[in-house]
């Protein structure tokens, strides 16, 4: 957009490859100017190598050090701010990684942070949803450095292996504060795709009635190669874990096919899934608000409809 703009994308990765949300952020960044990528990790050379071949990436800054074995905001913020002044924009995906890190970076730089950007209007003007997506605000930044988190569902991922071979530059690690210690991680083990990366999502609400009944959705999800999601009401009721939550305060998803089962369709849930390409709703209440956004609505008892649908998919 302008030759003067230089954009640093803070990569979320697993040391081997970039997360899809990072690729979407790169696509967004490319609309602003020349894109550099910062990869901080431990044993992350493979991720840096993969990143150097992503479309639109001009340079990769790689800080490979045991200090960055875990992506802690307190450890990464000093590294990001140490290179920030060479850039007009700092971007990260609006995942729990980016949401944790970027406000800390912005405050250190004494600039605003702009969350969940869904469109670039100009290098200083951006669109973002507010009030659970009931409004789309266009905001203009008056700061010298713009710090953004990017909603991945609003941008297609940059092509992997399609770029040239960007220069990989080693970046020296910086002392990390002693006040934070990583204790452990418990990632949900699942053969299913991640919610934010899935092509198909089967999501359950309070209508499922119990955690046991959520297994009904497993069978359907298995048939479709789908991820399983849940409404906040279902998480609140203890039927499903919080990392399944789709909505304003959970994950934002936009799969090709979203099947909402026993979900009434509170605005907070719609905020997380209404950009899905095709929405199917199954609810026994014909007045459920979910039907107002569904492409295909099935008014039926889910305990009959879901097994029938699972069987029909052969």
């Amino acid at each position: 957009m302008s030759a003067a703009n230089k954009v640093l994308v803070i990569a979320e990765h697993d040391n081997r490859q970039l997360k899809k949300a990072t690729l979407c952020t790169i696509r967004c960044a490319a609309q602003l100017g020349e894109v550099h990528l910062l990869i901080a990790g431990s044993g992350c050379a493979a991720a840096a190598e993969a990143a150097s071949q992503v479309e639109g990436v001009a340079k990769v800054l790689c800080s490979d050090d045991a200090r960055y074995a875990h992506p802690l905001a307190a450890a990464l913020a000093p590294l990001v701010t140490s290179v920030a002044h060479g850039y007009s924009h700092l971007l990260a995906p609006a995942t729990t990684f980016g949401k944790d890190l970027m406000p800390r970076v912005a405050a250190k730089l004494d600039v605003a942070q702009i969350s969940d950007v869904i469109a670039i209007v100009s290098p200083d003007t951006f669109k973002r949803p507010i009030y659970a997506g009931n409004g789309i605000a266009t905001v203009q930044s008056r700061d010298a450095i713009k710090v953004l988190t990017v909603r991945a569902t609003a941008f297609d991922p940059a092509k992997v292996g399609a770029g040239g071979t960007a220069l990989i530059e080693a970046l020296a690690p910086i002392d990390v504060p002693a006040h934070t210690r990583f204790v452990g991680q418990a990632l949900a083990a699942s053969d299913r795709p991640e919610l934010t990366q899935a092509r198909v999502i089967v999501s359950g609400g309070r209508g499922l009635g119990s955690a046991e009944n959520f297994h009904l959705l497993d069978k359907l999800a298995d048939k479709l190669g789908a991820a399983v999601g849940a409404s906040r009401a279902a998480v609140d009721a203890g039927f499903a874990p919080n990392d399944w939550q789709v909505g304003q305060t959970g994950k934002i998803v936009a799969p090709e096919l979203y099947i909402a089962v026993g979900i009434s369709g509170a605005i907070q849930h719609l905020a997380g899934m209404k950009d899905s390409k095709v929405i199917v709703a199954n609810n026994k209440d014909p007045e459920a608000p979910i039907f107002q956004v569904a492409d295909y609505g099935l008014v039926a008892d889910l305990f009959q409809a879901v097994p029938e649908l699972t069987a029909a998919l052969g």
Partner: peptide, 19 residues
């Protein structure tokens, strides 16, 4: 630090069909 230039309604999604 940020000026809100405008706030718009999100693009409406039209209801589809009941099967």
């Amino acid at each position: 630090r940020l000026a809100t230039l405008k706030v718009e309604e999100p693009p409406a999604r039209k209801a589809g069909v009941k099967v």
